[in-house]
């Protein structure tokens, strides 16, 4: 429990940091940071109940990206303004490190399994983003309406 709370707090700090680094307008910082915390919370809860890597990441990315799509429409800004910061806490930095470290120390089976886990996380995130964007495109005013000549 204590670990989860620390993770939520640090996720908020990191998301805020990344939002500043990606030049999110100061007015949007609050929502972007909240999105990062939301994504982490979903990831932790799903990890507790489902386990594994693929589905917690997919669910968390789906909720984070869905939150961005909704907030983008509410505040009338492009979706990436929220989407980029929201999904940042899921990026598999730890898995990438595990892969590299085991590769360098010659522990190849462990390196391969860490690498595949990292790939699984990446696929989960991509899947979540894709589902949310596709839903976002469906519920969007029509793009190419051609005038009848």
């Amino acid at each position: 429990m204590r670990e989860s709370i620390i993770m939520l707090i640090t996720a908020a700090i990191s998301t805020l940091g990344f939002s500043i680094l990606f030049y999110v307008h100061p007015r949007r910082l609050l929502v972007a940071t909240l999105g990062g915390v939301l994504t982490t919370a979903v990831y932790l809860i799903a990890g507790h109940f489902i386990g594994g890597e693929l589905f917690p990441n997919l669910l968390a990315a789906l909720v984070g990206a869905g939150f961005s799509e909704i907030m983008a429409r509410v505040t009338k800004v492009p979706v990436p303004v929220y989407m980029v910061p929201c999904v940042i806490p899921l990026v598999p930095g730890s898995g990438l490190y595990g892969t590299m470290f085991n590769f360098v120390t010659g522990n190849y089976p462990e390196a391969a399994s860490a690498g595949l886990r990292t790939l699984q996380v990446a696929l989960g995130i991509a899947g979540g983003i894709v589902i949310a964007s596709v839903l976002g495109i469906i519920f969007r005013p029509r793009l190419f309406i051609r005038k009848k000549r």
Binding site: T10, A11, L21, S94
Partner: peptide, 17 residues
Amino acid sequence: LCYLGGMLATGGFAVFF
């Protein structure tokens, strides 16, 4: 503030993991 942002992001993630 961008430098501060980079520091917050990295430091936060070191503790996060």
